[in-house]
Design a protein around this nucleic acid. Structure first.
Lengths: 233, 233
DNA sequence: CGCTGTTGTTTGGTAAACCAATTTGTAGAA
DNA sequence: TTCTACAAATTGGTTTACCAAACAACAGCG
């Protein structure tokens, strides 16, 4: 397990290294938008890494719109200025490991908005889905089992009901990290879980009533402990 | 170009198909947390696709914390209930193509929060960086050049100054999509760009003054046109 | 009968080979 | 000299082959 995370870390480091060296290359050669980068084979020779690594790095930069690969032709600098390029690459390199505090802060922001939208836009299907996750959570808590995942699932159901696919995506993205870190730091304890049932039901009822203001208030109450955690460190 | 997007679409479809078939397999075989999936080779035979495709699909599910690959051992179902598994996979399958409206809605939410945080937390370095992007934007607009990317860069600088790495990540994630769609739909026209200079400077000054309330107000003004676009369709 | 050392198989991970499309260089004709 | 036709090299993408580690089965010893 330890070794595994180490190798993963190494791989990430290799990829980050390649990205920064591509950035240096673009700067050194004064490549402008539309210019062609050296081929993947040449880059892998130059950087002394495998072509797979180079490809992964390029694909990552392509995802953020900085490069554009064209089959049987080459990889090109996107239509973006040199300052922009450098800034975004620096950001990309830095943002690999989000700290838990910013994760929680962002989660609170997303949830307070999505619960409002859910109260405005929820369908009957959404209600049914939320009720299912609510019951699953309650059952786990009553059996004194760990219910972190069922907890998150209720919140994901809200995000889905918000009708905003981007927020839904973001919630899904941070959920695994949240689960991992919660279990690591043991943020929630048992009596909080008992309280959580009531708070979840309150949120559910507010959404059912299509009352966005009430829903947001109940969510704020639910996040009270999280707030304290977030702004105490 | 047309063909290229088609093949990309096909690849995405293949991957989505594999993900849903993996879900079906887990349901059909009643696999529980910790159980082992068939090997990648068996899955690629069974699904009649290449092992690369299977690997990509598994890696995607691994990213969302639903599966766990262990080298020289196998791929295992993560510690998550069957309801959670199905729900999250359905979400993942659905959220591949975020609509532009939800993208803009989420961007407004993130920016209104991050501009507040930036006003509270910005360092002198952040100010310098923001000023650079501000000047780059102004220069492009004065030369009557397209300045969508420089516009976004100013906003990314604010996100960086917010000191929240997760929001920074999210802004980076949606920025390419925003750029693409803005250029496609021509949301901004020229006089708006002229206005944008003043509005950007107002936001910058508010952050410089460390006035979060003012900063948020100025950002709201800047987003007025976006608001209308977002809630008019 | 039970434990242990060994060997063969299976696994995810990785590098190399292959492919089709594109570009580039060149030779020849007008 | 210039344009065109053709071939050879280059490219990103894909498939295949290989690897070391982990696991399972079994033979041999106590």
């Amino acid at each position: 397990m330890k070794l595994e995370t180490l190798t993963i870390g190494d791989n990430q480091d290799v990829q980050s290294s390649i990205i920064s060296r591509i950035r240096d290359l673009i700067n050194y050669k004064n490549l402008e938008p539309g210019d062609k980068l050296p081929s993947e084979r040449m880059l892998s020779d130059k950087f002394e890494v495998s072509r797979s690594n180079v490809r992964e790095a390029i694909q990552k930069l392509e995802f953020y719109g900085l490069l554009k690969s064209i089959p049987q032709s080459g990889t090109f600098v996107a239509n973006i200025g040199v300052i922009a390029m450098n800034g975004m690459i620096d950001d990309i390199l830095r943002l690999d490991k989000p700290d838990f505090k910013s994760l929680v802060e962002t989660r609170i922001l997303l949830e307070l908005k999505s619960v409002r939208l859910a109260a405005l836009r929820r369908t009957e299907e959404d209600l049914i889905h939320m009720k299912q996750t609510l019951d699953a959570y309650s059952e786990k808590v009553r059996n004194n089992e760990d219910a972190v995942q069922e907890d998150l699932l209720f919140h994901l159901a809200i995000a889905k009901a918000s009708g905003n696919s981007t927020m839904n995506t973001f919630m899904l993205t941070i959920t695994p990290e949240i689960i991992t870190n919660f279990e690591k730091y043991h943020v929630c304890d048992d009596n909080q879980a008992q309280l959580g049932i009531i708070e979840h039901e309150d949120i559910y009822e507010a959404i059912k009533l299509k009352n966005p203001k009430l829903a947001k208030e109940k969510m704020k109450i639910h996040f009270k402990a999280l707030y304290q955690y977030c702004y105490s460190i």
